[in-house]
Design a protein around this nucleic acid. Structure first.
Lengths: 261, 261
DNA sequence: CGCACTATTGAGCACTCTCAAATATTGTGG
DNA sequence: CCACAATATTTGAGAGTGCTCAATAGTGCG
C-alpha cells in the first residue's frame, strides 16, 4: 500500500521481492485528512509511523506570538516521523496542505522488519540520512540566499523530489501551496514572496498557476538558485556504486538534466 | 577515551558498565587539528566516525561565490558524521574552530557495538534524533526570528549543550567563535552581529569577552529568544520516563533554570 | 451568485547590508 | 618582553532588500 515509500526505498537501497512484500503487509490502517487538518501534534507520544500515500503535508513549528515556520514538506512516500525509536515524541507538528491519505504503520513492526531484513534496515537508514541532508540544505538556503535564490532553490528541490516518486513529468508537478505557505517556508513575507514569484515568472523561469508548477528550463533555474542536487541522492551513492554499474544518483541527475533542461 | 560522548549517550539512554567499556575500546586513533583546519571535506568517502574530544568545530556548506553557511556546531562529545551507514558521503565540510582533538572510530566497529548491545544502538539513535531536532530548530531560528532573537536563541542552545557535557558552570562557558562565524551561522552580516551583540550586552543579557560567554540571567535571555529547550532533550524523554522516576530532561531543565537564572 | 480565501498592487518604513575606516586584541618573532 | 603583523571588533554613513499596512482584484467553493 505505501507504494511510493517502497519505490523510494527500493530505489536507493535495493529491496528484494520479499522485502517489498514484507513492507506492504505492515500497513495497519489508512486515514484521510483534509487540507489544513493537523496530522500530528507537537509533543504527542507516537507509537506509529505515518506515511504519506497521496497529497501533501508540512512539518512546522510555531512560537507563542503566532509566527510559524515550515521546516519540511512531505510528499507521497515521505514519513511524518522517524522510524527508529518508539515510543517517541516529536517537537514539531504536521499539517495537511491538501487532502492527504496516510498509512499508519506500527513502530515495532518497522523495527522488526529492519531486524529481519538488513536491506530494509539500510533502506530506512539511507532515507533518514537524506531527510537530514534536506534539513541541512534548508538551513543553508534560508541563511545564505536572497529571496529570489531561496524560492528558486526550493522549487528545484520540490520538482526533483516529485520526480523521484514519479509525480513530476517534464518539469511539471502539482504545488498545492499558498504564497503564504511559501513565505513561512523560506522566511519571507507573503507580499515579498508574491513579488519574487512575479520576478521569476517575468524571467521565464517558472510558471505556477492553479497549483500547477512548470519549470521550462531546469538548468536555468538551477543556476539562479545555485542548486546542487547531490544532497538528495548522495547518501546512497556508495551503496549504489557497490550494487550497480554506475552510481544511480548519476543516472537520476543525468535524466533530470536531460528531461528538465 | 571519547569521554564526553559516552557520558552523553549514557545520560540519554542509560548504558551498563560493559557498554561503556565497549565504547571506550572502539577508538582507533586520536588526531589533532588546529583552528581553521578542515577535519572532513564535503564529498569525501567516510568509513569512520570522528568524535570531538576537546575543542570546537563546525559543519558548513559553501556555494560557488564564496558565501558560507555554518549548519552546526560540534562540541566535545559530538560526532562529525552519522554512525549509521558505511561507507558514507557527507554533503558538508567540518572545520576546527579552535584547536580540536578528535577520536576516530571505525564505522563497522560502531555498527557491531550497536548489534551487540541494544542499549548502545538506542543511545546512538537517540543522539541522531536530537541532532536532527537541533537542525530543525536552526532552520526555524533563521527563518522566523529577528537578529536579536536569533543570536539569543543560539546562545541559549550553546550554553545548555555545554552544560550537558559538563563544560558550562553557572551560565559560563567558552565560546571560541568570531562574530563572523556567528553571522555565518544565523544568516546575518558581521557588522549586524556586532551591533546586535552590543544591544544584548547593553540589556545586561550577556557578557562575552576573550572567548568567554556569561549569561547572568538565563530566563531573561530565554524570553528574548522564545527559547524552548525541549528539543534538546525530548527525543529521549519517554525512554527516561521508563527508567527513572521522572523525565530526566525535566531535571535538567529545572536545574538549568535554578542555576542559570 | 456570493462569500471566503488567495493573489496582487501601492506606498512608506525599517531592519539589515555594504563599504570603509578606526580601534582593539591576539599571536609571533626579535 | 616588546613591537609588529595579523586578526577581530567597533563605528559611521548611506543604500537596499524585504516588511508592514491597506486596499483591490481574482479564484474556488458552496
Amino acid at each position: 500500500m505505501p507504494h511510493h515509500l517502497i519505490r523510494k526505498l527500493d530505489h536507493s537501497a535495493g529491496l528484494s521481492a520479499s522485502d517489498r512484500e514484507l513492507l506492504r503487509c505492515l500497513v495497519r490502517d489508512v486515514v484521510w485528512f483534509r487540507a489544513d487538518q493537523d496530522i500530528l501534534d507537537e509533543g504527542a507520544t507516537l507509537r506509529q509511523v505515518s506515511v504519506i500515500l497521496d497529497g501533501w503535508a508540512c512539518c512546522y513549528k510555531q512560537i507563542e506570538d503566532g509566527r510559524r515556520q515550515i521546516i519540511a514538506y512531505l510528499i507521497p512516500g515521505d514519513m511524518c516521523n522517524t522510524p527508529l525509536v518508539f515510543p517517541s515524541v516529536n517537537n514539531y507538528s504536521v499539517r495537511a496542505l491538501a487532502s492527504v491519505r496516510i498509512a499508519r504503520i506500527d513502530g515495532q513492526d518497522i523495527l522488526s522488519a529492519m531486524e529481519r531484513s538488513p536491506s530494509i534496515a539500510r533502506a530506512f537508514w539511507l532515507d533518514m540520512l537524506t531527510t537530514a541532508a534536506i534539513q541541512r540544505e534548508w538551513t543553508a538556503n534560508i541563511g545564505l540566499r536572497t529571496a529570489r535564490e531561496r524560492i528558486a532553490h526550493l522549487l528545484c528541490e520540490i520538482v526533483l523530489r516529485m520526480r523521484a516518486v514519479g509525480l513530476a513529468e517534464q518539469g511539471n508537478c502539482v504545488l498545492p501551496l499558498t504564497q503564504e505557505d511559501l513565505g513561512e517556508t523560506v522566511g519571507l513575507s507573503t507580499v515579498h514572496v508574491n513579488r519574487t514569484l512575479q520576478d521569476l515568472r517575468a524571467s521565464g523561469l517558472i510558471t505556477w498557476k492553479r497549483q500547477k508548477l512548470t519549470i521550462p528550463d531546469f538548468a536555468a533555474l538551477r543556476n539562479v538558485a545555485h542548486f546542487d542536487s547531490s544532497y538528495l541522492y548522495r547518501a546512497g551513492m556508495i551503496a549504489d556504486a557497490n550494487r550497480a554499474p554506475a552510481g544511480q544518483h548519476l543516472a537520476i541527475e543525468i535524466a533530470s538534466s536531460r528531461v528538465l533542461g
